[in-house]
C-alpha cells in the first residue's frame, strides 16, 4: 500500500481587488447608461439592441456609446475615464 504524501496545488489565489468604496446611485432623472463596443464585427448591432431594450424597460436619461480601437487590446484610459464620468453603469459586449 502506498504511503500518503503532501502535494502542492498548482492553482494560485487571485489577488483581492479593492472594493469600490462608494456606491453609485443613478440620478433622479434616470439612468446614465454606457456601452463599450469591443470592436468585434457585429458588437455594435448587439449593443444597439441592448440599448433599445433598456430604454423600453428602464428610465434611461442618457446613453454614451464608445468603441475600442481593437478587440485584441484593452480599452484606452481615455475611454474608461469618459465612461466613468458619464455613465452610471456600463455594459461591454462582443459578437462575432
Amino acid at each position: 500500500m502506498s504511503k500518503t504524501n503532501t502535494f502542492i496545488i498548482p492553482v494560485a489565489p487571485v489577488r483581492q481587488r479593492a472594493a469600490v468604496a462608494r456606491g453609485r446611485k443613478a440620478a433622479g432623472t434616470g439612468i446614465r447608461f454606457g456601452v463599450l463596443d469591443n470592436g468585434k464585427a457585429n458588437a455594435d448591432h448587439l449593443l444597439s439592441l441592448l440599448v433599445e431594450g433598456l430604454r423600453a424597460a428602464l428610465p434611461v436619461s442618457s446613453v454614451v456609446s464608445l468603441r475600442k480601437r481593437s478587440a485584441a487590446d484593452g480599452a484606452d484610459v481615455a475611454i474608461l475615464d469618459q465612461l466613468a464620468a458619464e455613465a452610471d453603469f456600463v455594459v461591454s459586449a462582443m459578437a462575432d
Binding site: M1, T6, F7, I8
Partner: peptide
C-alpha cells in the same frame, strides 16, 4: 515551504 503550507489552498494530503 513549511510556512507557505499553512494556507489550506496550498496543498493536500493524498496517497502517493
Amino acid at each position: 515551504l513549511g510556512p507557505l503550507l499553512r494556507d489550506p489552498e496550498a496543498s493536500f494530503e493524498a496517497e502517493d
